[in-house]
Design a binder for these strands. Structure first.
Lengths: 198, 198
DNA sequence: CGAAAATTTGACATGACTCAACTGGAGTGG
DNA sequence: CCACTCCAGTTGAGTCATGTCAAATTTTCG
């Protein structure tokens, strides 16, 4: 499935030849989901890795109290999968739900493994992408420890303004690890113009 | 530098030939540091990626209030580096300090890049290792949101009992994102036999 | 032995949560 | 076009987990 967004994405970190690029893209096929539909449910095996072409998803897990914790949001140009489940064919820890009507390009494990074997550069691409994701997650973990809820909320709005406008406060709260009620109180503090200390 | 621990580590995810294995190991050289010495200081460029052969390190960053947040501990069989700084030769966000007299095998960027180019399998190895680290970090992030401080402390002791015995409570607290005083209070609660709820 | 660091303890402060009530907008069916 | 429902969002009172600060005590280590 040729798709300009995917091609540009793949070329971002590795200089594939046109033939290699086509061989990659041909392993993907399109998939549509409606708002609120699940691409994956906790406990099932993740059979697909997906590249988001249109729409938006949340990846979350449910803890013993029934609280949903959002690991991340994936809009256009992002990947969605439970890495561990996809690679080892084990039950997923994550659920993946569409927050809008969405379109993906998905690839199955056999096709992905074939790409790894056939096209030098695919390993490099995913190594680099995984490293970048890891670095971002490391920073997020540290920020969770050193920032207050208000700082994290402000930072999220500043870092992802377009994404934030597409999400409800409930979801943003769940991503930041705070309650929706408290987000509401933070918003009021911000709106009523109180300067944050520091 | 041939070293049984490193060889076993490299073979864990990829079946290198003896020649490939030797070529990998030869790019590493030994390095010793004393307790409390820094391998890397925030702001400097990380010139080395290190594999810990003996001893223990903490990787941490300092926030605007001067608090040190431990990202992770690295004992034998772990890697230490500021990934971003090492690969892009930019100032590091992390500091790396030896908590004991330690020995590493280190590799510079030029040698690492050479390995990526010369030995098919090295990309795969680091892709897989990075993925596993990412999955572990994802789980840790979610646990930070859904577990209380006491639960996180208990979980850390249960998951890394040997490591925990080598660390002070100050460092464990900094890893868990809580204060050393509160760790002390948790320890008392545990010691006085109070069952944790849930 | 002596200094520095780690740990413990207690009083007090506060950030964030819980719960419950209320408001308002978006979609849906009649 | 209205009535109705369903969520998201807001608000407030009360509570709890965890932090802060300061002092006392123990351990580590030169």
């Amino acid at each position: 499935m040729r798709h300009a967004l995917l091609e540009r994405h793949l070329l971002r970190h590795v200089a594939f030849s046109p033939a290699e690029l086509a061989a990659c893209c041909d392993r993907f096929h399109p998939h549509r989901v409606r708002k609120k539909e699940f691409l994956l449910r906790e406990g099932d095996v993740s059979r697909w890795e997906g590249f988001v072409v249109r729409g938006c998803f949340r990846l979350f897990s449910t803890d013993h109290d029934g609280n949903e914790n959002v690991l991340y949001f994936a809009a256009e140009d992002w990947w969605v999968t439970d890495i561990d489940s996809f690679h080892h064919e084990t039950p997923a820890h994550l659920s993946i739900q569409a927050l809008e009507d969405s379109e993906l390009l998905v690839i199955g494990k056999a096709d992905k493994d074939a790409l790894y074997d056939e096209i030098p550069g695919v390993e490099k691409l995913f190594r680099i992408m995984t490293q970048r994701t890891l670095v971002a997650l490391q920073r997020r973990l540290i920020q969770n420890h050193s920032f207050t809820a208000e700082e994290r909320y402000r930072h999220f709005l500043a870092a992802y303004p377009a994404l934030a406008r597409r999400l409800t406060n409930v979801h943003i709260a769940s991503y930041l690890g705070i309650t929706p009620e408290f987000v509401s109180k933070i918003r009021r503090r911000i709106a009523t113009g109180s300067r944050q200390p520091g």
